[in-house]
Amino acid sequence: MAASETQGVSIDIRALRKAFGGVPVLNGVDLHVDPGEIMVIVGGSGEGKSVLLRHIAGLEIPDHGSIRLNGMDLQEYLRLRPGEKPFRLSMVFQSSALFNSLTVAENVSLRLQEYRMHPVREIQQIVARCLEQVELAGTENKMPSDLSGGMRKRAAIARALAIEPQIILYDEPTADLDPILTEQIGELVKRIQETRRTTQVVVAHNLALALRIGTHIAVLHQGRIVDYQPASALSRSDNPHTQDFIRAANLSV
């Protein structure tokens, strides 16, 4: 696929707040993601990283604040019919969220099949191409239960790629994976950026991965973005929360 076909879109988050049962989780998040960049959101467990990502995906409704995709309000975007949307958004879930009753090919092609976006033969070609891109060629007829954890994750990425999205959101894409598989997923995310220029937002607590793949890194602490740096400059940040996180990551290596 030519890079020009899937130019990424910008994400602009302003004063985003969310509480569950009176407990605040997001306390006014401001974040800008440029088109085609890989933004990695890091932070400790329970800081609201996944909740933030789910807001961008439209799975949560904010109590306050706004999210704009290429200047369009997210709620307005969500109200559009699939065919009317000016760009597409995919999400890779921590659990992979593959449908266990469907084969890998059916999982990857589900949205294309549902909306009859292409002729059947073309859908088969798209599925084969996406699986090849994530190095899962030949697994079309396997069931998700036949795949290893790393393969499931890659199949989930293939499913995300199949609709040629302009934004891909990843929720802890390397959680529960060994360092080699983590490396492979990181490479895959980088390769997607190089070949498709897709805007990618990755939620991770693996700092090494964040530094390797991120264009920018945002540090989320107690529901706020407390630091925002180019990946190459993160280690020089004087923010105490960032320093704490780097220290803790170094200790855990």
């Binding site: 958004l89 995919s90 449908f99 949205r111």
Partner: peptide, 12 residues
């Protein structure tokens, strides 16, 4: 396991 959410993100 977020499969319902996965459907939603696919506009299904």
């Amino acid at each position: 396991y977020d499969e319902i959410n996965a459907l939603k993100t696919m506009d299904i």
